[in-house]
């Protein structure tokens, strides 16, 4: 899986969770840019991504990913593990 494919799938998940079909993600997107992205929704988001990609994030990755770019990088490091 390449980064673009991962982006596409993750964007879908974001659009479903935040109920907004116009969400466009970039490496720099942070919680401040998306309405409703609080710590609780973050957990739900992580769970959906884990299910969609069949991966498990590490605790530190969940806590420390500062933006979408870091999240995608962490995600890709687990794919195919």
């Amino acid at each position: 899986m390449d980064r673009a494919q991962a982006y596409e799938k993750v964007t879908e998940i974001f659009r479903d969770i935040f109920e907004d079909d116009e969400i466009v993600l970039s490496d720099e997107t942070t919680a401040k840019d998306i309405e409703g992205w609080d710590s609780l929704t973050h957990l739900s988001l992580i769970n959906e991504i884990e299910m969609a990609f069949d991966i498990r994030f590490k605790l530190a990755e969940v806590q420390k990913s500062k933006n979408v770019g870091e999240l995608i990088t962490a995600l890709l490091s687990h794919v195919g593990e």
């Binding site: 609780l40 957990l43 769970n47 299910m51 590490k58 605790l59 969940v62």
Partner: peptide, 15 residues
């Protein structure tokens, strides 16, 4: 879900 517990004090997995 241990990471979830340590991150958010939730003791069972979301699923």
């Amino acid at each position: 879900d241990a990471p979830l517990y340590y991150n958010a004090k939730m003791t069972v997995s979301i699923n």
